[in-house]
Deep mutational scan, measured.
Amino acid sequence: DAEELIELVERALKEGREIILLGVRITSEEAGKWFIEWIRRFL
């Protein structure tokens, strides 16, 4: 579910982890915020 995915992304970014989803590397909080917004819009 989308909320679970958002929580995972937020937690990983807070822990300083690198996330790779759909071939996109997300390493900064700014990118994470963009990704979370995208999830909310399309899922």
Results as ranks from 00 to 15, higher is better:
Leu8Arg: 08
Ile26Asn: 04
Glu4Tyr: 15
Asp1Ile: 15
Leu5His: 01
Leu13Arg: 03
Phe42Thr: 05
Gly32Lys: 10
Glu4Asp: 09
Leu43Tyr: 12
Arg17Asn: 05
Leu13Phe: 06
Glu18Met: 10
Ala12Asn: 03
Arg17Lys: 08
Ile36Tyr: 07
Trp34Leu: 10
Leu5Pro: 01
Arg17Val: 11
Leu13Pro: 01
Arg17Leu: 13
Leu22Lys: 02
Ile36Thr: 03
Trp38Pro: 00
Glu7Met: 12
Ile6Glu: 03
Leu21Gln: 01
Ile20Thr: 11
Arg17Pro: 05
Glu4Leu: 14
Phe42Pro: 00
Ile19Asp: 00
Glu3Arg: 15
Ile6Gly: 03
Arg41Gly: 06
Gly16Ser: 07
Ile39Asn: 00
Glu29Ser: 10
Ala2Lys: 07
Arg17Met: 09
Trp38Phe: 09
Leu13Ile: 12
Ala12Val: 08
Lys14Met: 07
Ile36Lys: 04
Glu3Met: 11
Arg11Ala: 07
Lys33Ala: 11
Leu22Gln: 03
Leu5Ile: 06
Leu21Lys: 02
Ala31Tyr: 09
Glu30Tyr: 11
Leu13Val: 08
Glu29Trp: 14
Glu18Asp: 06
Phe42Glu: 01
Ile19Phe: 06
Glu29Gly: 09
Glu7Tyr: 11
Ile19Lys: 01
Lys14Ser: 09
Thr27Asn: 14
Glu15Val: 08
Glu10Leu: 15
Glu4His: 14
Gly23Ala: 10
Glu37Lys: 09
Ala2Thr: 09
Lys33Asn: 07
Glu30Thr: 08
Ala2Leu: 15
Glu7Ile: 11
Trp34Cys: 11
Leu43Glu: 01
Ile20Glu: 05
Arg17Tyr: 12
Arg25Gln: 06
Leu43Ala: 05
Glu29Cys: 15
Glu7Phe: 11
Glu18Thr: 13
Leu5Met: 08
Arg25Val: 09
Glu37Asn: 09
Gly16Phe: 13
Leu21Ala: 05
Trp38Arg: 01
Gly16Thr: 05
Arg25Leu: 12
Glu37Pro: 01
Val9Lys: 00
Glu15Asp: 10
Ile6Met: 05
Ile39Arg: 00
Ala12Pro: 01
Ser28Phe: 09
Leu43Gln: 04
Glu4Phe: 15
Arg41Asn: 08
Leu21Glu: 02
Glu30Ile: 11
Glu3Ile: 12
Glu29Asn: 11
Ile26His: 02
Ile6Cys: 13
Asp1Ser: 13
Phe35Trp: 06
Glu10Phe: 10
Ile39Met: 08
Glu4Met: 14
Gly23Phe: 13
Glu18Lys: 08
Arg40Met: 12
Leu43Ser: 03
Glu4Thr: 14
Leu21Trp: 05
Glu37Ala: 12
Leu8Thr: 04
Arg41Tyr: 12
Arg40Tyr: 10
Gly23Leu: 14
Leu22His: 03
Ser28Ala: 07
Leu22Asn: 02
Glu3Thr: 12
Ala12Ser: 05
Gly32Thr: 09
Leu43Cys: 15
Glu7Trp: 12
Ile20His: 03
Arg41Glu: 05
Gly23His: 08
Glu18Ser: 12
Val24Ala: 03
Glu37Cys: 15
Gly32Ser: 05
Ala2Ile: 15
Ala12Leu: 11
Thr27Ser: 10
Trp38Ala: 02
Ile6Tyr: 05
Ile39Val: 09
Ile36Arg: 03
Val24Ile: 14
Ile20Asp: 01
Ile39Ala: 01
Ala31Pro: 03
Glu30Asp: 09
Ile26Trp: 06
Arg25His: 10
Glu7Val: 11
Ala31Ile: 15
Phe42Val: 08
Arg17Glu: 04
Ile6Arg: 05
Leu43Lys: 03
Glu4Gly: 13
Val9Glu: 01
Phe42Gly: 02
Ser28Lys: 03
Leu8Tyr: 07
Glu18Asn: 10
Trp38Asn: 01
Phe35Asn: 00
Ile36Trp: 11
Glu4Gln: 13
Glu15Met: 10
Val9Tyr: 01
Leu8Asp: 01
Ile20Gln: 03
Ala12Trp: 11
Ile39His: 00
Glu15Ile: 09
Ile36His: 03
Ala31Glu: 15
Glu29Thr: 12
Ile6Thr: 04
Asp1Met: 14
Glu3Asp: 12
Ile6Ser: 03
Phe42Ser: 03
Ala2His: 10
Thr27Lys: 08
Phe35Gln: 01
Leu5Asn: 00
Glu10Lys: 13
Leu21Phe: 07
Phe35Ala: 02
Gly32Tyr: 12
Arg40Val: 07
Arg11Phe: 03
Glu29Leu: 13
Arg11Lys: 10
Trp38Thr: 01
Gly23Tyr: 13
Glu15Trp: 13
Arg17Asp: 02
Glu10Ala: 09
Leu22Ala: 04
